[in-house]
């Protein structure tokens, strides 16, 4: 059991499990964000964000989420370096075999997403959790962080909106391969179900990326 993670397949297993965990997290994040544009006030969003920050179970899951993210990044880089080392002399003409297009650029899209995450977390998560630079708002006599106003302020800056749209497009490229690839790595391949998984991957990617892209656009123009 212990040495499974020393092997190439074992490391891929970690990548896929961590990736699926992150895939499961995205719709939750999207659902909470959508509260900001689906309701007239920021109250629902702020209360949802408050619940996510203070609920004990969520706090435990959050630890797993960050652990999953770090493992996914660490093993992604580790495996990529091994892959580069496996071909020390490159071809004069790079291979153009018919393959899954997005799979060729996983490390590149990952690098962009990593930069996005640093900016995203420092703008919202760390501001709220560590620096406490978030305005306070009172609902029913109880104080909440007004994260909603923080988001709205950011998404009134055109450059910020463009940056978010661009990053979510790259996330979509990453997910288009990552979703079904995770199942293949787990050995879940089936004549009937694999095409279903691939279609679900496309649907998931479409919904998640369009959902996330809509929020800054909506706020910029309509809030």
């Amino acid at each position: 059991m212990s040495i499974i993670f020393n092997s190439s397949i074992g490391k891929k297993l970690i990548m896929s499990l961590a990736g699926l965990f992150l895939i499961a997290f995205l719709p939750v994040h999207l659902g909470i964000n959508l509260c900001l544009i689906l309701y007239d006030t920021r109250e629902v969003f702020n209360k949802a964000a408050h619940f996510m920050s203070n609920n004990l179970i969520i706090k435990v899951i959050e630890i797993f989420l960050f652990a999953g993210l770090i493992l996914h990044i660490f093993y992604g880089i580790y495996l990529q370096i091994q892959n580069w080392m496996a071909r020390p002399v490159r071809y004069k003409i790079e291979n153009y075999s018919q393959t899954s297009f997005f799979s060729k650029f996983m490390i590149h899209t990952a690098a962009i997403i990593a930069v996005f995450l640093v900016i995203h977390l420092s703008n919202f998560y760390f501001k709220s959790k560590i620096f406490g630079e978030v305005p306070i708002v009172i609902y029913d006599g109880k104080a909440y962080h007004d994260l909603g106003i923080l988001v709205i302020e950011k998404f009134k800056i055109p450059g910020f909106v463009w940056f978010y749209i661009g990053c979510f497009l790259f996330l979509a490229f990453h997910l288009l391969h990552g979703f079904h690839s995770a199942f293949q790595t787990l050995g879940l391949d089936h004549k009937v179900y694999t095409p279903v998984i691939k279609s679900l991957g496309w649907l998931y990617t479409l919904l998640v990326s369009v959902g996330f892209i809509l929020i800054p656009i909506y706020i910029y123009f309509l809030v």
Binding site: Q82, R87, S97, Q98, S103, M106, T185
Partner: peptide, 15 residues
């Protein structure tokens, strides 16, 4: 032996 890791790209199957 130093082979790389599979990233489910599918070039092997195609070729």
């Amino acid at each position: 032996l130093g082979f790389g890791n599979c990233t489910n790209t599918g070039a092997c199957e195609a070729e």
